[in-house]
């Protein structure tokens, strides 16, 4: 949380990106605490590793100094944020407590996955079996999204740099 707040405050974008990497790593350790080892693994490698490298790449292509905003109203946005946060907090009073085994979420399909996965799929890691087999469609769609993102990035910045139209007009 501290790193997130610091990332909000700082203006030097290099520091912001590095703090974002630290924030990802901290949240990955939080995922381990909450028993989500697969997710923690992914978050540590993706958030703290690759995302930081991509952001640094962008900074090296653009600029690393954030300018002081010209006509921004920080108070207004702070007010909006606080009101939204308060409304959300009010909403949490109806949600089941943290770590409660009687939550409705634990009584729908999860017991089926946990109990029958060994007989039906035969692999111990339930996350893998749900990911690849029970919810194969989701993962197929997700792989397609990643594929599409790669195509998008290639179209946007993949080719050699051409002189943009504006430069031509100016010269």
């Amino acid at each position: 949380m501290v790193t997130a707040v610091a990332a909000v405050r700082l203006r030097d974008l290099f520091a912001v990106v590095m703090l974002f990497g630290i924030y990802s790593l901290v949240s990955a350790s939080l995922f381990v605490v909450m028993d989500a080892v697969d997710v923690a693994f992914t978050e540590a490698s993706v958030g703290a590793g690759v995302a930081t490298v991509f952001m640094l790449g962008t900074l090296s292509l653009t600029t690393h100094r954030e300018k002081t905003p010209i006509a921004r109203k920080p108070l207004l946005s702070l007010l909006v944020v606080i009101i939204t946060g308060a409304a959300l907090m009010y909403g949490t009073y109806d949600i089941p407590h943290y770590g409660d085994a009687n939550d409705p979420i634990h009584h729908h399909v999860a017991p089926h996955y946990l109990e029958d996965s060994m007989e039906e799929i035969g692999i111990p890691n339930v996350v893998s079996s749900v990911l690849a087999s029970y919810r194969g469609y989701d993962t197929l769609g997700e792989t397609t999204v990643v594929f599409t993102a790669a195509i998008g990035v290639l179209i946007l910045i993949g080719g050699a740099r051409r002189r943009s139209k504006r430069d031509d007009e100016r010269s």
Binding site: G57, L61, A132, T143, G158
Partner: peptide, 24 residues
């Protein structure tokens, strides 16, 4: 299936990195 996912994700990440690095 995991092999397919792995190949795609690895290639996509390196492709994106090449694009960012090659742009500079």
């Amino acid at each position: 299936v995991e092999l397919g996912v792995g190949i795609t994700v690895a290639s996509v990440m390196v492709t994106i990195f090449y694009s960012f690095a090659g742009r500079g």
